[in-house]
Design a protein around this nucleic acid. Structure first.
Length: 435
RNA sequence: GACCCCUUCGUCUAGUGGUCUAGGACUCCAGGUUUUCAUCCUGGCAACACGGGUUCGAACCCCGUAGGGGUCGCCA
């Protein structure tokens, strides 16, 4: 039978990375087996399920390149079928109505647990079981007449022909109920696999306060979709060898539920950042330029020029995230850049620095050409003649033209900025800090 | 409280009875290359939760304890 998995989020405007990882595993599993990966939008909460929220969800999936087979099923269109099934269960005596009283809410429909012990083979955790006496009847239709999650979820999985339900392990308890529902409805029980949760840096479940846990946040922080996908895929799963940076095809080929971890995993931003850096390196020059362009647009800089492309080339291999780009090269586009206080205090405001900068300025003025090779040669000569350390010359010059003490190779930076700008900045720096 | 799940370096993990004085990656630290910055290279620190069994032999099997997490009739 063809494998069919699904991702069934409720669109609330944010997609938690725990959910998104579940989506990734469903996708990987389906692709590995040549099956279908389906989407079901559980939009029964009309308040929160706005068109905007659904759009956000689809964008997140698109960003991670999780392509869906077939049309998405919107749960809100299935209410009649859900209620009809409830009626059927009622008529067979498998469910009953009850007025919970007190609140005067009216009668709800309650599913009657069949009273037998249940166990199932979880694809990740192995055999799980629960005794009948520990399972209670549960509500499937609210007193206001709307179907509850358990009913809707199971019916829609049946409708979509889902063969493998891969979801968070907070659903384990629900699974016993769902199995009873499948059986009561005369449907085949699918295979289940329960993923451990993703926790915050304190090892606790993510809460609203933690931030950091929504897919959109990672995008805003400058991470690449492919990198986040790779990172999340490896958070709770490993191919069994030492591979970490893997292509989609490699991950699809190696993916196996049995190799998934059954304990919770913590997100490590440092490792994600490292991995993202590796992916930044893999970007083509064009892809990098596009990313850099948008970052600068966001910062209000017009970066559509040959000059900008030269600047991008300087930092091409030294950014870890796309968010690193703008702050690293702001001084190329803005003459009123800020000076880093610490850099000024430690490297600039020292005896002799004014002298050094003035001399270097004079040297630069007299150079026949002002390019990478000539400035390089000239500064080396100056270092030798003056007897100053290389760092004692380079650092002040760098801070004078960029405001910071670290950055791309200095000589190319000088060349791209051009003689005029370099001289202006050196003069201004001396006036501002050294007089 | 009841029921269920989980437990290898700080973190992600490899490991399915002997090859484990426990391997890799990220982080961190120390050297080195680069007469700037970053990269890069080499090395180092660092773990089988605890206690009992079973076995010639246990990180791997069993039991217990502790700790963490989840669920507990109208959220999904």
């Amino acid at each position: 039978m063809k494998v069919r998995t699904r991702f069934a989020p409720s669109p609330t405007g944010n997609v938690h990375i725990g959910n998104m990882r579940a989506a990734i595993y469903n996708w990987l599993f389906a692709r590995h087996h040549g099956g279908d990966f389906l989407l079901r939008v559980e939009d029964t909460d009309r308040e929160r399920s706005t068109p905007q929220a659904i759009k956000t969800l689809l964008e997140a999936m698109d960003w991670l390149k999780l392509d869906v087979d077939g049309e998405p099923l919107y749960q809100s269109t299935r209410m009649e079928a859900h209620l009809a099934a409830a009626e059927l269960l009622l008529s067979k005596g498998m469910a009953y109505k009850e007025d919970k009283g007190g609140t005067g809410q009216g009668e709800c429909v309650i599913f009657r647990m069949p009273g037998n012990d249940t166990s199932f083979a979880d694809g990740i955790k192995g055999t799980l079981s629960k005794a009948a006496e520990n399972m209670q009847d549960f509500v499937i239709v609210r007193s206001n007449g709307t179907p509850v999650f358990h009913l809707a979820n199971v019916l829609d999985d049946i409708e979509q022909g889902v063969t493998h339900v891969i979801r968070g392990d907070d659903h384990i308890e629900n699974t016993y109920r769902h199995i009873a529902l499948y059986q009561a409805l005369g449907a085949d029980v699918p295979n289940f696999a329960h993923l451990p949760m993703i926790v915050n840096a304190q090892g606790k479940p993510y809460s609203k306060r933690d931030g950091d846990a929504f897919v959109g946040d990672f995008r805003e922080k400058g991470f690449l979709g492919d990198a986040l996908f790779n990172y999340l895929a490896l958070l709770g799963w490993s191919p069994g060898d030492d591979r970490e940076i893997m292509t989609r095809d490699e991950m699809i080929e190696a993916f196996d539920l049995a190799r998934c971890q059954s304990s919770a995993a913590q997100v490590d931003m440092k490792k994600l950042t490292w991995m993202n850096g590796e992916y930044m390196l893999k970007l083509t020059t064009e892809e990098f330029e596009v990313a850099a362009f948008w970052e600068l647009e966001k910062a209000g800089v017009d970066a559509e020029s040959e000059y900008a492309k030269r600047v991008f080339g300087l930092i091409r291999e030294r950014v870890k995230t796309v968010a690193d780009i703008a702050p690293m090269i702001g001084y190329f586009f803005n003459d009123d850049f800020e000076y880093d206080e610490k850099a000024v205090r430690k490297k600039l405001q020292k005896d002799g620095v004014a002298d050094t900068l003035n001399k270097v300025k004079e040297i630069f003025q007299t150079l026949e050409t002002f390019d990478e090779a000539s400035t390089d040669r000239a500064l080396h000569e100056f270092v030798e003649e003056s007897g100053l350390g290389f760092g004692a010359v380079m650092a002040p010059v760098r801070i004078a033209v960029s405001g910071v003490q670290s950055g791309p190779d200095l000589f190319p930076v000088l060349a791209v900025l051009g003689r005029e700008r370099v001289l202006e900045r050196m003069i201004r720096t001396v006036e501002q800090f050294l007089t």
